[in-house]
Simulated assay, not measured.
Amino acid sequence: MKYQTELKDDVLFIRLEGDLVAGPDTQRLMAVAEEQVENKVLLCAVDLSNVRFMDSSGMGVLVSLLTKFRNRGGELVLIKPSDHIRKLLIVTKLNAIFTIAENDNFAAQFLKESIY
């Protein structure tokens, strides 16, 4: 899995690509998220549009990220998961805890409204 991060208007955008599975990249990603939370970044949008596959550990990463931001009074949304990832979220009932946005603008708007 590859990832890129960008801080734009107080929103941390995490763009994932490839397979979301356990490994060194997910550990680094969690460390980056922790660092941003420590720096008072409370809003996060995870772009899943280029994620091909996700296993249970990948789902755990998403839940951990959500928990990390919500525990500090923040929020996290998922951006444009593929049909395969959407089905996984539904089957695991994680669609009930995650908000899904279709693009960056909607994600940023939802996030900003969620804490104000």
Rank of each mutant, 00 (worst) to 15 (best):
A96M: 15
L89M: 14
V37K: 04
I79P: 06
P24E: 14
C44Y: 03
F69V: 09
E17K: 07
Y3H: 08
Q27H: 11
M59Y: 08
V77M: 05
N103I: 02
A31G: 11
T26N: 06
F69A: 04
A31M: 09
K87Q: 09
P81E: 03
V37S: 06
A33K: 06
G74A: 11
R52G: 02
K2M: 07
A96Q: 13
D25C: 11
A96P: 00
G74D: 05
G23H: 01
Q36L: 09
Q27D: 14
N103S: 04
N103L: 09
A45F: 10
D104Y: 15
F13D: 02
G73V: 09
E17N: 10
S49K: 05
Q109W: 10
L62V: 06
M54E: 02
A22Q: 06
T26Q: 06
L20H: 00
G73S: 08
D83E: 14
R72K: 15
R28M: 13
V21M: 01
R15A: 13
N71L: 11
I100K: 04
K87W: 08
L88N: 05
L29H: 03
V41L: 05
L7H: 00
A101D: 00
L7P: 04
I100H: 04
F98K: 03
G60W: 04
T99H: 12
D10N: 14
F98L: 07
Q36P: 01
V77L: 04
A45I: 12
R86P: 03
S57L: 11
G73F: 09
V63Q: 05
I79E: 03
V41D: 03
L29S: 04
L16G: 00
T92G: 08
N95A: 14
Y116A: 15
T99M: 12
F110D: 07
K93R: 15
V77T: 03
A33I: 10
A107N: 12
N71G: 12
A33S: 10
S49Q: 07
L78C: 07
Q36I: 07
V61Y: 01
